[in-house]
Computed example of a mutant assay.
Amino acid sequence: MTVRETTIPGLLVIEPRVFEDARGFFLERFHAERYAEIGVGGFVQENYSRSQAGVVRGLHFQRRHPQGKLVEVVRGRIWDVAVDLRPGSATFGQWEGVELDDASHRQLWVPAGFAHGFCVLSDVADVLYSCTDVYRPGDEGGVAWDDSDLGIEWPVDAPVLSAKDLGWPRLAALDRDGLPDAPAP
């Protein structure tokens, strides 16, 4: 596998080795020892979502039980976004966007303490994400997907969002208790 660091410490793009021939392809989507060497692992929950073109999901996080997420697309194409919300981080409030698709098999490692979201670029996208902690509805937090202070460059003109995702506050409106309880790098 090839690992690429992003501009935000801890946020990684992982490209697994893909073996292709006339029958199709094979890859290891996770190998505990190899991924542990780069600080990725300890998964306790797997999530699967299917979304239509133009859907924006996020930006989500857990407050007291922050989740690290290994994100990949098994069908389609998305613009995946992570925002550093780790209090005390030198890159607090900065974001990184990465295109993930079923052709490249690229993965994004989103450490605990980040808000995460994505936009569907294909007709349909199936997204898998392995999480380091379980989802707790009462612990959920979020940031407005279109927060002008963040300046995320979403590649969609008319996004489709849930009522919950339309109601998240801007980052500037969150106090320390509203942020993930995660250590800075």
Rank of each mutant, 00 (worst) to 15 (best):
L108R: 14
H65I: 07
D139K: 13
A103P: 00
M1T: 05
G167L: 13
L11W: 04
L128M: 15
R50Y: 00
P155M: 07
A53G: 10
W109Q: 10
S122P: 01
R176K: 12
W168L: 10
R77S: 12
H31Q: 12
L150N: 09
D177F: 11
D101P: 01
V71I: 15
L174E: 10
Y35Q: 13
G68V: 00
D21G: 14
W168T: 05
E5F: 02
A22V: 15
A115F: 01
D165R: 13
V127G: 10
E46N: 08
V56F: 10
R34I: 02
S148A: 10
R170C: 15
G42Q: 01
A144G: 09
Y129N: 05
D147H: 06
D147F: 09
L121F: 09
C119V: 04
R106E: 05
V110Y: 05
L121C: 11
P111Y: 00
G117F: 08
D133W: 06
Q94Y: 11
V160K: 10
F25L: 06
A82K: 11
S148W: 04
D181Q: 04
D139N: 10
V40N: 12
G88F: 07
S162E: 01
L59W: 04
V120R: 03
V83A: 01
C119Y: 13
E28H: 05
A32W: 03
Y48I: 11
P137I: 12
V56P: 14
L179V: 07
H60G: 03
Q107S: 06
A115Q: 00
E33K: 12
V56A: 15
E96Q: 14
G93R: 08
T132Y: 02
L12C: 08
R75L: 15
K164V: 09
G10Y: 04
G178T: 03
D80M: 11
G97T: 03
E33V: 11
T91P: 14
A82M: 14
D123P: 04
F25W: 15
D139F: 14
E5S: 13
R77H: 09
E15H: 06
D126H: 12
L70H: 00
K164H: 10
S122M: 06
V18A: 03
